[in-house]
């Protein structure tokens, strides 16, 4: 993973929501924390090109998010806060297959890829199920499968354990810790990112701390109280 922010600034309706930011990320597991409205989600959306910088550049694995949006999105998978809105088709296996259409695979290859990713997350039994029938944890795993079927290099997750009960939170946390991909996780769930390689703290649209998880989380606690 090679992510570079070069004086990248994000604006929304003329207001700066993320002040000019310069940093490089190459660790495998990165956590992003901060209060609501601090710029975390904007930062994450800039990584996969959903938000392009008004000033400066964001480079992901050598691709400029403003110029090579499609390439950047092929490199990065994104799990949204509400996985319900991420599932485009009602039946899970159809939805996962939808992400593969641009690959021009044969029907057998598509079915095999869908089966493999469902097996990977232990949700093969949900293949024929409708998304509205799934529990919060199952829905989060389904969203993961729908994104990882395209084998992105980087996975970005926006508050993946938000609104989950204790059981489902544990299920999703174990899954995240078991992922082989490079991950960037935005979360209020501090134990989830406590052993990550690097943690970024955003506050009022600026990077307020950046470093080892324990120190950054301690700084966050100071800001939050």
């Amino acid at each position: 993973m090679d992510i570079r922010f070069e004086q990248a600034e994000a604006r929304f309706e003329g207001r700066t929501v993320l002040h000019p930011l310069t940093l490089s990320l190459d660790e495998r597991r990165i956590g992003v924390i901060g209060l609501n409205g601090s710029g975390k989600t904007t930062f994450a959306r800039m990584v996969n090109g959903l938000v392009v910088p008004a000033v400066g550049h964001v480079m992901v694995n050598g691709f400029d998010t403003a110029k090579d949006g499609e390439r950047v999105r092929a490199e990065t998978g994104f799990i949204f806060q509400n996985p319900q809105n991420q599932i485009i088709l009602p039946i899970l296996k159809e939805d996962i297959a939808l992400g593969l259409k641009s690959r021009k695979l044969s029907k057998q290859e598509t079915e095999s890829a869908v089966r493999d990713v469902l097996d990977r997350f232990g949700i093969a039994h949900l293949a024929e199920r409708r998304a509205h029938e799934l529990s919060g944890g199952e829905l989060q795993l389904a969203a993961l499968a729908s994104v990882l079927v395209t084998k992105p290099n980087i996975l970005i997750m926006d508050e993946p354990t938000n609104q989950l009960d204790l059981k489902n939170r544990g299920l999703v946390e174990r899954t995240i810790h078991g992922l082989d991909e490079n991950v960037i996780v935005i979360s209020h769930d501090l134990p989830l990112i406590a052993d990550f390689d690097r943690v970024l703290l955003f506050h009022e649209g600026r990077l307020a701390a950046d470093g080892a998880a324990a120190e950054t989380i301690a700084r966050y606690r100071e800001i939050a109280t």
């Binding site: 959903l50 994104f78 949204f80 992400g99 641009s102």
Partner: peptide, 8 residues
Amino acid sequence: AAIDARGI
């Protein structure tokens, strides 16, 4: 946004 993010 999800459609764009998934490259659909």
